[in-house]
Design a protein around this nucleic acid. Structure first.
Length: 946
RNA sequence: GGGGAUGUGGCGGAAUGGCAGACGCGCACGGUUCAGGUCCGUGUGUCCGAAAGGACGUGGGGGUUCAACUCCCCCCAUCCCCA
């Protein structure tokens, strides 16, 4: 491929070669930078510019998911989305909009820290070097970013605002009546004024200072909790649920993870469950992503029901209170707190053999079962394929409606951490319960009439309730459908004090602290009582201190009893601090956890708006302009957000949560951060392995008759990611060197729809190169360098084609269908190539339409065509509607679905005229018979049924 | 196990229910060239045929329709997510 750039003796001196492309590209990148071509004017502040050609124009905010700058640099897959947004943004700019497009870096994160642990190099050093490398690689691609707006999450100017937002969250509580966050000051005022009752009913004034603080802290959206967390001794840190694999090990390092009660920062994202769910409806996002978010939030409505036992009530959660009459047994998780109390000394009279697990006493049975369950992971426990296991506790509960005795089992298919850790089993209408009931020979009572032809087993469909009446206690569900039966059952439970309607969530509060070094410090100190105190805004930023040792203290991987020790805690001189927080100088202890990597990406899109603002994270006027709602009820947010589908849940959910808090507190006018989301596909690659299974360099493999060889040896092909270890990496740098950035851009955009994953094929890049060469040659004489353009107007056919292409390309650009837009430009170019000279009235629009994809060569040609400035703000061509309607139309004529002839008629020909011409054209195929039916589709075709 | 996505030439892909395969790669032939891993042109779904032409053809099976890659039902395969 490098030969393409090699000078050969007979290459015409003015041919568009890789060398010339490189020269042009370098020059235009310098020009754009020097002239600040892609600076987007703000309405107010230092980045305002009333003289800018797009000042006050309709805005468009285009956003990429910003990258983590890894040490490996970019491969050809990484910039796919960036090139896509660049083409879109360049088009929109030419179409008259004021376009904001910037690029920053999500620069806190584990790899740099681990590298630091291994080498002693400060993470900042590594990260900043990586950022520089990324910036160089991205600049080489000619991306039209407003470089003044580039931010990095590790900059103190940036993370001071991350800390500021944390304080907003910390200083807020969720008012469930108003359905929004409010400052805790207002909560305290309500307690003081008596409008709000304290948890135990005592007047606020009678509470001690510590008690008041505890009450307030219980309301905060950011709070310290003693909840069970995933403690990983081998890594020395706690992990979020999503960082733990299905088999209970750390995603990184594969160390065992233990559930431990540890003091951790949490964010009360569950308070926003309803809004995070409902507001999905306002978003222009791919449906699969919305669905994943809905599933992740996992809202289920049902009821809590209390089953009375001699040892106190067992509270269960069920989504099907309507099937209460079918509840024939209870199941508790083996870890459930009531289990020990429920177990009697001996098996009750009449206990069946299968219920005992072969043990002499209930206690022995339960203990043996618990031991076995503890050795399994949650996934194993819930696996549907496994035979259901469990054991009878020996205890009974009273059915809340009928009063019948209900046996209580422990079984590991019920998880302690989910719902209440206890279920009422309804084997007739739940598959898992049905499987369990079959194993343990438990009664199965149908309470829903199955539909016709139902094969048996658990019936989960709808139908009228049956066997569901207890008139003596005033509950009759018979005949009711699902929704009515549910409502009536809940009403009865509530009226009789046996339970209440309830909503549960799969979504948990967000574990927000990490025992690491390379993250944002918390703006929190602790006083002598151990209470967490927010630092005042003026003390921000809390800068990350230097340390000698970047690693958290790690432990033996299996040492479940160990405790986290953070890197920051070892800087005692930083941790111990004297501050005056209003009541005179006092000693405080700093929080030594840091924030998780998600923090910066929760709000970075807001900082692009006003990156130099020192008094606010963004001026409200700038936020309103770029992200505010476009109409009443509109959620606002960025106009386009492009990134990989792997961030479907976490990043997008966390960012939405933070944005909503800021909205509630009046800091932003949009209630969603990203109005439209677009998931770009992945560029994948083939990798080849030799007979030992070792990867061989993919570029050295040749194909012979559908088999692949590396030298003499046959190798096996596999398809997947591009990666160093697979020896199949292709970098944008190589492509730019061999063909130029414009060719690379055109190739990436033309190889398929942006949202679809597809394989990389270096050999095919040459097609885009030839295309740009043809465009170049249409304008510039390769031998002399002279313009080949004529001022004679183009012929009718060429002009019609041009306007058809303009019309199509505009539609494709708006719809992010770049591959078909490029195909149309190639068609136009190929048509122009056949002409003896290129008419200027075609060359100019062609160059302008090419500009979003191949901006450098387009700028160069635009200049050669005699224009002084950049085309970045030139008007994108507009189609002349008169040239879009053809004078004549060719109709294919089908007989019984097969094309048997063609007619050419005037475009405005009447239907009768078309019909008779068509019948005449296919008279031979009809063989003199009268057609049964003739369908004329205006402008399309004629279909004859013989 | 549940959910989602995808299935069209040798390859990437194109087609408001209206002529399947635009555009590109590859391949073949021709031109340019001392030469060609350059550039240009022509051709290229499969089968039959010298050609004209014909038959078949969008993972498989059924259905709706004058007309289905497109809409509906069943099945198969691959990939992704969740459990």
């Amino acid at each position: 491929m490098s030969e393409a750039a090699a000078p050969a003796t007979d290459i015409p001196p003015y041919r568009y070669t890789a060398a010339l492309a490189g020269d042009i590209e370098q020059r235009w990148q310098d020009t754009w930078q020097r002239e600040g071509t892609f600076h987007a004017p703000n309405p107010t502040g230092p980045l305002a510019d009333p003289t800018h050609p797009r000042a006050g124009a309709e805005k468009l905010y285009v956003l990429d998911m910003f990258p983590y700058p890894s040490g490996a640099g970019l491969h050809v897959g990484h910039p796919l989305g960036y090139i896509g947004t660049d083409c879109f943004a360049r088009y929109q700019r030419m179409a008259g909009r004021n376009v904001l497009h910037a690029m920053g870096f999500d620069a806190f994160g584990l790899p740099a820290e681990q590298y630091a642990v291994q080498t002693g190099t400060h993470p900042r050093t590594t990260t900043e070097a990586n950022i520089e490398r990324y910036k160089e690689q991205l600049r080489r691609l000619g991306l039209a970013h407003d470089e003044r707006r580039s931010v990095s999450t590790i900059d103190t100017d940036f993370y001071r605002w991350t800390q500021w937002i944390f304080l907003q969250v910390f200083n807020s509580w969720y008012d469930t009546d108003a359905k929004r966050a409010r400052p805790v000051a207002e909560l305290i005022a309500e307690f003081e004024g008596g409008q709000r009752a304290t948890p135990d009913g005592r007047p606020w004034a009678e509470l001690t200072v510590a008690e008041r603080r505890a009450v307030v802290d219980d309301h905060r959206l950011a709070y310290v909790s003693q909840a069970p967390v995933n403690w990983c001794p081998g890594l020395g840190t706690v992990l979020a649920n999503e960082e733990v694999t299905a088999d209970g090990r750390s995603e990184r390092g594969n160390f065992p993870v233990f559930k431990r009660n540890l003091k951790q920062w949490m964010m009360r994202i569950t308070a926003y469950g309803d809004r995070l769910l409902e507001d999905l409806d306002t978003l222009d996002w791919p449906e699969p992503i919305k669905l994943q978010q809905r599933n992740w939030i996992g809202r289920s409505t049902g009821a809590h029901i209390d089953f009375v036992t001699g040892q106190g009530p067992v509270r269960v959660f069920t989504t099907r209170p309507d099937t209460i009459f079918g509840a024939t047994y209870l199941v508790l998780a083996p870890e459930h707190e009531l289990v020990d109390a429920l177990v009697p000394a001996a098996w009750p009279e009449g206990t069946r053999e299968v219920w005992t697990g072969g043990h002499a006493s209930p206690r022995a049975a339960v203990e043996a079962y618990r031991k076995a369950a503890a050795a399994k992971t949650d996934v194993e426990r819930q696996s549907d394929t496994r035979e259901k296991t469990g054991v009878f506790t020996g205890g009974y509960a009273e059915h809340p409606v009928t009063g019948a005795p209900v046996p209580i089992f422990v079984a590991d298919y019920v998880l302690a951490g989910y719902g209440t850790g206890a279920i009422m089993a309804v084997p007739a209408e739940d598959e898992r319960d049905h499987a369990f009931a079959e194993v343990f020979e438990l009664p199965i009572v149908r309470t829903v009439q199955p539909s016709e032809g139902f094969a048996g087993g658990a019936y989960t469909g709808d139908g009228p309730r049956i066997n569901s009446a207890a008139p003596e206690v005033g509950l009759d569900l018979d005949g009711l459908g699902l929704a009515d039966a549910k409502a009536r059952a809940i009403a009865w439970l509530e009226a009789n004090g046996r339970g209440a309607g309830a909503v549960t969530w799969r979504l948990r509060d967000w574990l927000f602290s990490r025992q690491r070094y390379w993250g944002e410090p918390f703006p929190i100190v602790y006083d002598e009582t151990g209470a967490a105190i927010a630092l005042p805004e003026e003390m921000l930023p809390v800068e990350l201190p230097e340390v000698d040792d970047f690693s958290p203290k790690t432990f033996d991987a299996d040492d479940a009893a160990s405790n986290p020790e953070t890197p920051l805690s070892r800087r005692r001189d930083w941790v111990e601090v004297e501050l005056d927080l209003g009541d005179g100088p006092k000693r405080y202890t700093r929080e030594t956890n840091v924030m998780p990597q998600w923090a910066g990406s929760c709000w970075y899109e807001l900082r692009y708006l006003d990156p130099t603002n020192t008094t606010r994270f963004a001026d409200p006027e700038n936020e309103r302009y770029w992200m505010g709602p476009r109409a009443a009820g509109d959620c606002g947010g960025t106009d386009l957000y492009v990134g990989g589908a792997e961030h479907a849940v976490l990043h997008l959910l966390y960012a939405r949560f933070w944005h909503k808090v800021l909205f509630d507190l009046g800091h932003v006018s949009s209630f969603e951060p990203f109005r439209k989301l677009f998931n770009q596909g992945m560029i994948q690659a083939y990798a080849f392995r030799d007979s030992r299974g070792a990867p061989v360099p993919a570029e050295e493999v040749v194909e012979v008759d559908g088999r692949w060889f590396h030298g003499e040896a046959e190798v096996a092909r596999e398809y997947g990611k591009m990666g160093k270890s697979l020896k199949n990496v292709v970098t944008p740098d190589e492509m730019c060197a061999a063909y130029g950035a414009d060719t690379f851009r055109v190739y990436e955009m033309s190889m398929g729809p942006l949202e679809v994953s597809r394989p990389w094929d270096t050999r095919a890049v040459v097609g885009s190169y030839r295309f740009l060469q043809r465009v170049w040659r249409a304008v510039v004489d390769e031998e002399t360098g002279e313009l080949r353009v004529t001022d004679e107007p183009a012929d009718e056919a060429t002009r019609r084609l041009l306007h058809k292409v303009i019309d199509g390309v505009r539609g494709d650009m708006e719809g992010i269908r770049f591959n078909t837009a490029i195909a149309k430009l190639i068609e136009l170019t190929n048509a122009v190539t056949r002409l003896p000279a290129t008419p200027r009235d075609v060359a100019e629009p062609l160059v302008l339409m090419l500009a979003p994809f191949a901006p450098h060569v387009a700028e160069e040609l635009w200049r050669k065509l005699g224009h002084a400035g950049s085309l970045a703000y030139a008007d994108f061509p507009t189609a002349d509607p008169r040239l879009l309607v053809a004078e004549t139309v060719t109709y294919p004529v089908q007989v019984n679905g097969k094309v048997r002839g063609r007619i050419e008629v005037a475009a405005d020909a009447a239907e009768d005229e078309v019909r008779s011409a068509a019948l005449e054209a296919v008279a031979g195929s009809l063989g003199g018979k009268e057609p049964r039916k003739v369908i004329v589709v205006k402008g399309r075709m004629v279909s004859v049924v013989a």
